[in-house]
Design a binder for these strands. Structure first.
Lengths: 231, 231
DNA sequence: CCCGTTCGCATAACGATGTCATGAATCCGG
DNA sequence: CCGGATTCATGACATCGTTATGCGAACGGG
């Protein structure tokens, strides 16, 4: 029987009310360790100890260290999805697109170590991305694809293939975030400055008028606070 | 006394003709292991064994596993520098810029695991980038800065700050390469297709005319083979 | 209500890892 | 030619991921 379904049954019947589930506890502790102390602190013994269990629980639930990382990655994808879904659709689709980029970057910076595992190719505890994980990552592109379609429909983008335009947005924002996390973007050309320029350049490259692009990107900057407060 | 200078002296006097230097041997073996078998295969004992020495030599020369990784990173930077230097200056600066991007990607794909450590934030064997390493990485930007200046001087780019334009090129190409290495860019929008579109979009975003940008990028694709053969 | 079965998890061990103390062998300056 | 310095092999230590073993609690049929 699959451990997951086993756990499902256990959760439904909830044998111990005081126990919020060792499985979720392990994932939470692991995420906290990774976020606060970096990848080196993510050891099976330490995770188990801080979660108040032994290392064996980690193996019955996740089959090993890489399984636990996979679970964190899954949760990272749903969190990214939530951040992107918080960006709605207004009458300025280019501003919406820029706001998608801002939300993406915001999520990446908030969970930097996890982001490096999800998209940066950082091999953590022997874990490597499976095809389903990658598919979950590509799924986040759909927000940008839909937005690119609206930009084209509104006559702002001249690009014909919204998937390609969305990919370019993704690639550029991902590149900025990873270089920023690597500490490469500093003082004269810091990450904030590069990001603003990147957004405007992307919109122009997709076919928008320079003045309109600048205005929409600036407007999305204003609207950012609003979305953040809504979280 | 610094091990590096120690080794320098030893190399100059070459005490044993048959020994090509244990230090460089260790780096070569490590680079080969990393490139052929991935980060998990990079263990101190294995590197030492395949280099025909014991693990202690690794500590006298590099102070530990992270020191060896740092040495590989340094060599990775000079190799990248060589790839970028091979791109000369022609009368079409936009094509030169596109060719710089192609050379950058070429080098990254040829040494994918090393690239992930240099720019992707992949924490390998407890190594983390020092500020001098990052400075070496930023140094590679100078090629693109000089090229962006030429693009502006030729009236192709309208951007005022060549450093900012060059950064955008770097960010975008880096983003594409990391997503490509992560396996995220597949069939309908594979890495090649995205890369070509990215190059054109970047030039347009920097201010070039769409038709001229398309022509220059295509021309750089033709010229790529020539540069590769020159290596 | 009770006992056999099953399941979750703790204990302890194994191989492999990075690192370092020790000591032998070698090199170099005087 | 010698003595301090240096390189490197041996072996040990703590810790890592992983797993075999076993105990106690929860479940289900009688």
């Amino acid at each position: 029987m699959n451990p997951a379904t086993r756990r499902e049954k256990l959760f439904d019947m909830s044998p111990r009310r005081s126990d919020p589930g060792i499985r979720t506890g392990l994932v939470d502790v692991a995420a906290r360790l990774l976020s606060e102390h970096g990848p080196r602190a993510l050891s099976a013994r330490r995770v188990a100890a801080e979660a108040g269990s032994s290392t064996m629980a980690l193996y019955t639930h996740f089959g090993g260290m890489s399984g636990l990382v996979r679970e964190m990655v899954r949760e990272g994808f749903v969190r990214l999805e939530q951040h992107l879904s918080a960006v709605g659709a207004t009458d300025d689709p280019v501003a919406d697109m820029a706001l998608l980029g801002r939300a993406y970057r915001r999520n990446a910076l908030a969970n930097s170590h996890l982001y490096a595992v999800m998209f940066g190719g950082s091999s953590l505890a022997g874990f490597s991305l499976g095809e389903e994980d990658r598919q979950a990552g590509r799924y986040t592109l759909l927000h940008a694809v839909e937005c690119a379609s609206r930009c084209s429909a509104a006559g702002r983008f001249s690009a014909i293939i919204p998937e390609l335009t969305a990919s370019q947005m993704w690639i550029a924002v991902h590149g900025l975030v990873t270089l920023e996390l690597g500490g490469y973007l500093i003082d004269p050309l810091d990450a904030d400055r590069c990001f603003e320029a990147q957004l405007v350049g992307l919109m122009i490259g997709a076919g928008d008028e320079p003045e309109a692009a600048t205005r929409s990107v600036a407007a999305s900057g204003q609207r950012l606070e609003h979305v953040c407060r809504a979280e």
